[in-house]
Write a protein that binds this DNA or RNA. Structure first.
Length: 486
DNA sequence: AAAAAAC
């Protein structure tokens, strides 16, 4: 019982824009949220990522703005009537572009303001007057305080990624912004994840809200295959390269927890001959937008990013997400893997687990309501560069942590040694990638090296059991995946 | 163990 946009009797300019964009059937969040927003109710909406939330709030807002003239008389001909707030600049940019497309055939004007860019062009746009303003909090406050925009006629506020907007880092800015807005207004909150705490807090910003939950909140899309591999800190890059080949992945988001880690990983992968670019908050905004744009166009294969890219970014057909680090917040796991498997497409999410991530993994299991199985990964020697002769063996799905004893051992493992940052003398920066000196022979063939040096998890007890689970990679499969990856 | 958002 999918409903069509045509059943909504939207204003002609909106219907035309939708048709031009090739949309006909509504997604569940759209089918449920649009009628409610059209009634002017406050909404708290939870829906999986990639299910069309932006259209779910922007279309009915535009419709209402077209149907209802702003009642108050304004000195500006185009007072801001709708304000959309987002937690990252790239996301603000993306949502603004989408709204502009929906509003294309209307007289309604929209613009976006975010930090890291020159104030002047933004100010000029604001002074011309816009009905719809998309923004990140900090820069918006700058504009408000510089009196570049007046928000006392705002009728609609949207907090997208609402749980993030309401978290401790954003809340002070958000409260200040809200203090500039009329009390009488419609407020819409949307996110894929809502913790119960945030839900309660959110309630205090809403008046008699309608709660819309199209899937259990915090759920991950069933179109995303989720896998977890036990990988030592030092083996992560090698494991990434190997899995890219094995899975035949052409393009992927690669998440790390730190900006420095991203910068290093991107450089190292580039040196290995991969087409990788970093995206994190220490880059200039210009670089950030360029990196994202190149990834969108498919000019870049691997986007090595922090959680700046975890939420909302909508890039078509990215087949894979790698979590080289397990995110600090379980919610961010849900958002990160939501960068793949969008709009019903399939995707794979691969996460690397070290000994100290066990607790966090449990949090993720709790949040997504699924048990995870951590597999071990036998790393090949990789004598060649990426795209050359593949490694000799691959893991064929060994379930490691289903064994309670192994799990207990993992818990007690000492934390991985962390290399201190050392400017340009850091060998990680300056030396070409050295493949591991060992071959890929497994431990049971009498290799004297400690198991961890070969990427074999040190807590494997039964060699026989393990041997049965590993088998050489079939040559045919290797070739096809190599081709696909190049 | 961090990142994000203003200059």
């Amino acid at each position: 019982m999918t409903q069509a946009f045509s059943e909504l009797s939207l204003a002609e300019p909106l219907a035309r824009a939708i048709a031009e964009m090739g949309f006909s059937a509504m997604t569940p969040i759209q089918a449920q949220a649009i009628p409610v927003v059209l009634q002017g109710r406050d909404v708290m909406g939870a829906a999986q990522t990639g299910t069309g939330k932006t259209a779910a709030f922007s279309l009915p807002l535009l419709q209402r703005m077209l149907k209802h003239e702003n009642a108050s008389t304004s000195p500006a001909r185009h007072p801001v009537r709708a304000l959309v707030l987002l937690p990252t600049r790239e996301l603000a940019d993306q949502v603004a572009q989408q709204i502009a497309l929906y509003a294309k055939h209307t007289q309604l004007r929209s613009t976006v303001v975010f930090g890291g860019m020159d104030m002047k062009p933004q100010t000029a746009e604001l002074k011309k007057g816009v009905e719809i303003l998309v923004a990140t909090p900090g820069r918006l406050l700058d504009h408000i305080e510089a009196k570049n925009c007046v928000l006392n006629q705002v009728e609609y506020v949207v907090l997208d990624e609402a749980d993030r907007m309401l978290d401790i880092g954003f809340l002070p800015d958000l409260q200040r912004i809200l203090s500039y807005l009329p009390k009488q207004r419609t407020t819409l909150l949307f996110s894929a994840t809502f913790s119960s705490e945030i839900k309660r807090l959110a309630g205090s910003y809403l008046q008699d809200p309608v709660t819309i939950e199209v899937a259990r909140s915090n759920a991950t899309a069933s179109t995303i295959e989720q896998r977890f591999y036990r990988v030592d800190e030092d083996d992560k890059r090698q494991a990434l390269k190997q899995l890219l080949l094995e899975k035949g992945v052409k393009q992927a988001f690669v998440f790390l927890n730190s900006k420095l880690g991203c910068a290093r990983m991107a450089r190292a992968l580039e040196r290995d001959g991969l087409n990788a670019v970093a995206l994190h908050g220490d880059k200039s905004q210009d670089e950030r937008l360029k990196a994202l744009d190149a990834f969108k166009k498919g000019e870049v294969d691997l986007l090595i990013c922090t959680d700046v890219a975890a939420r909302g970014l909508d890039i078509k057909d990215v087949p894979a997400v790698f979590n080289l680090d397990i995110p600090f917040n379980a919610e961010d796991y849900v958002h990160r893997i939501g960068r793949t498997g969008r709009a019903g497409a399939s995707g794979i999410a691969i996460s690397f687990v070290t000994g100290r991530d066990v607790k966090q993994l449990a949090e993720i299991e709790k949040l997504i309501g699924k048990k995870t199985e951590v597999e071990s990964l036998l790393l090949g020697s990789d004598q060649s560069r990426f795209g050359g002769a593949p490694s000799g063996r691959q893991n064929d799905g060994q379930r490691l942590w289903s064994d309670p004893q192994a799990r207990a051992e993992v818990r007690s493992e000492r934390p991985t040694r962390i290399r201190a940052p050392r400017a340009s003398s850091d060998p990680f920066f300056d030396q070409p990638y050295q493949p591991p000196a060992t071959d890929a022979r497994p431990a049971w063939e009498g290799n004297a090296q400690p198991a961890s040096a070969r990427g074999l998890s040190p807590y494997i007890k039964s060699r026989k059991k393990v041997a049965a689970l590993f088998r050489p990679m079939a040559p045919a499969a290797v070739e096809s995946s190599t081709e696909a990856a190049s």
